[in-house]
Nucleic acid binder design. Structure first.
Lengths: 234, 234
DNA sequence: GTTGATTGGGCTAGTGTCAGACCATTGATG
DNA sequence: CATCAATGGTCTGACACTAGCCCAATCAAC
């Protein structure tokens, strides 16, 4: 029964490591940037500083972070996304299992399509339109290094602009579950061009207030990514 | 930042109470039925028996459960959904806040539409079609007492049939967030008839494999509910 | 240099949570 | 009526987590 599932995914330490890894891998804190101060971060995460420090130390020992003391010190992100490698891809898929993979792709398809449709259905302020266009432009201008991070930011803006934090959280969660996969896919120019066209279509549909077109555009975009995945796996 | 939100919603006791309340209010365990034995339930929920017992005692003291000892004993559900009352509705909305209300409705719209679209897009086995039709028939044959519970079961089957447990969980969560509201809405025959028509349309679209029609049908259904809510609130 | 603000590092006492064992009660079955 | 299996009730020792406090290091500003 869906509702009588475990109340907690693990202990506080494990969940904190997981969450920080999310922030790093999704590029919420990019390479070279630093996490908020421990005291502040502990409050945001709703845990004690002791537990947070244990998590940070684990990530430090795994070479994700470089921790420096003193004023202007902090926990700096050293992690840079690995170069795409289809060998990694197979390994990642083997780690997560094909069932979980299908689950994650289905979930992402549902929530991102839903978010785009909802966003297109509602009225948008000028600021919101500007933000969306800005994020789109960011992705289009992105170099290879920044592409995934800015692509993530674009997708998440769509969810955040709906004004529903539940929905934004769900989309962030969905994105995270496929981020290791996406990072392992080689970025070929032809695919990037294709994605760019689809991104344009998504934004156009949202700005036009065409809910069904928005859903269809996101659906095609994600289906394209899934097909790419299947291609590199077979 | 969405990703640096609290790692845990509360302590184990609080989360457990919340989860059991979900099971009771969503009708996963109906009035008169009993929860699984403590030892078993504790394993399912991933918590210790001590913590589970504290949660059960809290629900017992709040008159949701009747706990009996001995063989054939257990924690029996005594809670029956209150009679719809628009006064309750205003109170519930005041409790959750209008922002959270909008958030919950938006979230539900996105995930349920997404689930229906995904389900319609994929191929269905005969068993799956049967289950869907069965749930639809259950709602149509339901009395006033059982209506909400079977309506919930119908909506959740759509999500569960996608095969994505992440999606099923998201839909259950969304439903829960509006269940107090739905329970407070009077059930007028005209509304029930309207819902029945919409349910039929949803199932028809899914069985026909028409993804966009499925999304549209769910969208109209949920928009209808939202409109009903706004009506009783103004 | 010296200072002071900011940040990570470490300690302690108290509370929450857990696993496992054992006790108490109930009621169908023989 | 006696038995016994299933179930809730209780206790204990160990570990996880927290809040709060103070120490140590760093570096810009003076």
């Amino acid at each position: 029964m869906t509702v009588l599932r475990p109340v907690r995914a693990g202990n506080a330490f494990e969940e904190t490591v997981e969450r920080l890894l999310q922030a790093i891998k999704l590029g919420v804190v990019g390479p070279g940037e630093k996490l908020p101060p421990e005291r502040e971060l502990a409050v945001q995460l709703g845990i004690s500083r002791v537990t947070l420090r244990e998590a940070i130390r684990a990530l430090q020992e795994a070479d994700y972070l470089d921790v420096r003391r003193g004023r202007y010190g902090g926990a700096f992100v050293t992690y840079v996304p690995p170069r795409p490698d289809t060998g990694d891809l197979r390994r990642v898929v083997a780690d997560m299992g094909t069932d979980d993979l299908a689950d994650a792709l289905t979930f992402r398809m549902a929530v991102e399509c839903g978010a785009a449709a909802v966003l297109a259905a509602g009225p948008l302020t000028g600021d919101q339109r500007d933000l969306l266009c800005r994020r789109l432009a960011d992705v289009n201008e992105a170099g290879v290094e920044d592409y995934r991070r800015l692509d993530t930011a674009f997708h998440l803006s769509v969810a955040e602009l709906t004004g529903s934090s539940l929905l934004a959280t769900a989309c962030a969660d969905a994105r995270l579950r496929v981020s290791d996969l996406l990072n392992a896919i080689p970025m070929l120019q032809v695919n990037l061009d294709h994605s760019a066209t689809q991104h344009e279509a998504i934004v156009a549909a949202i700005l036009a207030g065409d809910s069904e077109a928005a859903r269809r555009a996101v659906s095609e975009h994600l289906e394209g990514t899934a097909a790419l995945l299947r291609g590199f796996l077979s």
